[in-house]
Amino acid sequence: MAKNSTELIDAKLPAQPLFRGLRPDLVGQRLVLVVAVIGIWWLSSLSVPHYILPGPARVWDALQLIVTNGDLWNNLGITLWRVAVGFTVAALIGLPFGIVLGANRRAGEFFEPVIPVLNTVSSAIWAIFAIIWFGISNATTIFVVFMTAMPLIITNVWQGTRTVNADFIELAQVLRMPQWKVMTKIYLPTILPYFFSGARLAFGFGWRVSLVAETIGSSSGVGYRLRQAADLIRTDQVFAWTLTLVIMMAIIEMGMMKPLENYLFRWKKDAEAQ
């Protein structure tokens, strides 16, 4: 393509930034909110014992302690690793399975009742089964994350497969495209947004249930540390761990998932802008 054509485009089309620009007024609003929450927290902590509600300063000290002695990184790392493994296995199984269920009517009809049943089983029940089967090990947490994430991914991919436009299949047919190219060039791009929103949901759920699994079936990880801190009535440490989790989730969601989604699906008409 000619070099100067890109300049032409820039002049004619709205820019497609990887990161949406931060609105200054919104940043201000968020800052006010954070300050207000910390203020209320501090005020309420003055009138109750610290093992019920530790003040911001105490929690800050606890946070600094787990950061400096390496506790934070070790446990956050192991938890994140377990979530990632469970989630990846769920995605690797859920994506092809969802496509098959969506593309094959008979398979879809046969398995239709299974997914809602899986979705209604509480993660706590999976955790109990996991302890029976795997004992105190990495596999316990991974299994719980997997069992929670997989039905979500399958459901979404399945739904996505049903939205594949028959007209586009016909277009590929006219071009006599081989079947595998129809899969990669039409099915996959159609399903991708559905897979992505399923994966995001699954990752969020997986992250949360991993803590439940770790509190009862593990001797390391953030969930284990949380329970330990609670057993010792170190409420400041419970707060510190909770805070790191919230920050971690925010970074993953806003720093990685959202920009990636904006970039991958930049071809979609921006509904928010309308």
Binding site: M1, S5, T6, L8, I9, A11, K12, L13, P14, R266, W267, K268, K269
Partner: peptide, 11 residues
């Protein structure tokens, strides 16, 4: 359609 190579259909 020179100059519109990189436009998406909705544009």
């Amino acid at each position: 359609l020179e100059g519109f190579e990189d436009a998406f259909p909705y544009q």
